[in-house]
Design a binder for these strands. Structure first.
Lengths: 381, 381
DNA sequence: AGCGATCGGGCAAGCGCTTTCCATCACTCG
DNA sequence: CGAGTGATGGAAAGCGCTTGCCCGATCGCT
């Protein structure tokens, strides 16, 4: 095997590097020179999709190995007009809900696996701010991201939705794969291949409320999430549907026991204290999510109420800590890991868009210790 | 103001775009043409660091605005030999410890803020696998990442450490800012500007053990983390130091009550059952972290033991759920958000390297309901 | 008024890769 | 046996930006 010498450019480059005292990165051209082929060929064995003879391929692979070649991703992205980056927009990764989603997604990207799977996840905390969401999308567009996963979390107002739709359609048209996860579909031209993953929030909330009613609860406080979020709306709708079914006339009473709050623990705590102060009796409280339920439970305990003897408490999401609260939290499992995996497959194109573009993942009622029948001798809120 | 027409190249480009039916991204050259300046000038107003007359600047900014120009990040990265990407290696973002760290870091990067702050965080789950850690570093090197934050989590064996050191020094030499967070310094050439952030694990563990001893506990089980991790070592060392101080002779008994386990809930559960099975009495168990403590508590409760009446339980980290376990968990607060913020400042160069390159963040004992004096009439494990 | 210094901005050379178009070469078929 | 046909691999044109170098104009000073 004949080893060609690097061309003049490279010679100069290396010369400079030596002068300046640090080695420069190995380039395609150097690999090519070493393997005795052109850089085009090296590129082709590295990227596939083009026939390369076995011997040549071997020689190139060996040169890559020997030189410890690491491809320059920006250069590749520039030439190919698309990068290996996948943007993941979440409310906040520090929140377990999004952490699990993002973590599962990132792992499913499997960038260190063999072959083509070199997608890197860029996570962006939008903190529920529509402007931040748009701004991040702009940055990702600038990065020529190969895909973007938008998860729920940012408020859904029409202006923002429109601005988002513009950006998203431009990116999708340019070849970026877009996945909406846990948020409603965007008003986009139908032709765009944008995937949507939703959770059966409504069904879960329905089953949870039914569970409470079956236990005998008739006065169920509901700590709804922030208004304007589809998640909030769906869960509330499911809840109400269950109540209405049992007691078609009683919806007024329910409304009075429904409070909108944030998605944080403190929101649950504050809302519950407010509910307690109002003095309207209830025997159970269902929260927008586990975190809120936890805050609610703390407020109830502080008020001297026992869970579940005096008040039943239920959450939503089934985050890991739900089994370790006191008592373990009845909740609705949301398949976050599955969603992350699915999102990863969709955003990388490893899985084809389902018909209609939308996949709804099932939720599951998890009955645990925090809910029980209302007892006769209970203390009243 | 005279508006120049785009040059021929652009005309051709746009022509092609129109034919193919989708608009191509606005380029620097188009902005330049519109502002009546050269693309070099546009680049300069966008990147600063070069004098540009006020009027020119205004004109350029206006053109950028009108055209909705979004810079091509890969092109910039190629030309500048460095990208806006910051790699964050964590065990798993789904784990609150790392989720909080990564979330705080990402937010502190403030990429949607004004001006230069356009760093994007690439998060990588290493799952504790040294090979994955090295592989991710390679990918980030290929991305010409502007910075990398390595957090704890991967096993620390000599081979791996050496391999890591090679990669890290090459990247650092090439201008990538490297921050080690919650892991020991790497054996690197001293000249390299690598920052290290550590937590006072030893001090925290010491104070926690002292707290237990002060309560009157003398038989303290210790569920240590995976062997070979500096975090494990430090926490264990602090724990032992406190015990030795109270009872210089009793270290043997302690050793028998020390078990190494993983960092997951199940590890705490299993280890505690094992401890129970052994039948060696203890009145308290201190765990490697809150998650493990939670598993331990579950095992104890299952065995019919009350917390803290029969056995005190303590964790480490003070993750958010620690206040909501039953009872609330005594633990040691690790300033994760502060660490994330600091790491962000260091990795972006917004904060200078401290002398010696190493910053140790303090930990704080959080006494809550899960620890109490051993009672006389308690049930024995 | 004349001259070097300073400022502002243009030119153009890359950065390292992908990809289109071509040139070979070895065969196969009529 | 010449032309057609794949199968390979090379040459080279960019991708869109940064930046070193250089030039013209403006300015201050003697």
């Amino acid at each position: 095997m004949e080893v060609h010498t690097a061309d003049e450019t490279m010679a100069r480059t290396n010369g400079r590097a030596e002068e300046e005292g640090f080695e420069m990165a190995v380039t395609l051209a150097e690999v090519a020179a070493r393997a005795g082929v052109s850089s085009a060929t090296v590129s082709r064995v590295l990227n596939g999709g083009y026939p390369v003879a076995g011997g040549t391929r071997t020689r190139v692979e060996q040169a890559v190995e020997e030189l410890g070649y690491i491809a320059n991703a920006p250069a590749r992205a520039l030439a190919a007009a698309t990068s290996d980056l996948v943007g993941v927009l979440v409310h906040d990764v520090a929140d377990s809900f999004f952490g699990i989603l993002a973590g599962s997604l990132q792992s499913a990207l499997d960038p260190t696996g063999p072959g083509e799977a070199r997608r890197l996840a860029v996570v962006c905390n939008t903190a529920g701010d529509p402007a931040a969401e748009t701004a991040y999308l702009g940055l990702l567009e600038g990065q020529r991201a190969g895909g973007v996963v938008l998860t729920g979390g940012a408020a859904e107002n029409p202006d923002h939705t429109a601005a988002l739709a513009v950006r998203v359609s431009r990116m999708a048209a340019a070849g970026t794969r877009v996945v909406l996860c846990g948020r409603p579909p965007l008003p986009l031209p139908a032709a765009l291949p944008v995937a949507t993953i939703t959770f059966d929030d409504r069904g879960g909330a329905f089953r949870l409320a039914e569970h409470l009613m079956t236990l005998g609860h008739r006065h169920i406080a509901y700590l709804a999430g922030p208004p304007g979020l589809s998640t909030t709306r769906e869960r509330l709708a499911g809840h109400r549907a269950a109540l209405a079914r049992h007691d078609p006339a009683g919806s007024d009473a329910c409304a009075a026991l429904t409070v909108h709050a944030g998605f944080e623990r403190s929101a649950g705590y504050d809302a519950t204290r407010e509910l307690l102060r109002r003095g309207r009796p209830f025997t159970a409280v269902a929260a927008a999510n586990d975190t809120v339920a936890t805050g609610a439970a703390a407020a109830l305990r502080e008020a001297g109420l026992r869970i579940p003897e005096d008040v039943s408490v239920a959450g939503f999401d089934d985050l890991p800590f739900a089994v370790d609260t006191a008592p373990a939290l009845t909740t609705v499992r949301v398949p976050l890991r599955e969603a992350g995996l699915l999102a990863a497959q969709l955003v990388t194109g490893r899985r084809a868009l389902p018909p209609g573009g939308i996949t709804t993942l099932p939720t599951e009622l998890m009955v645990r210790g925090s809910t029980a029948p209302p007892t006769a001798g209970r203390r009243r809120p």
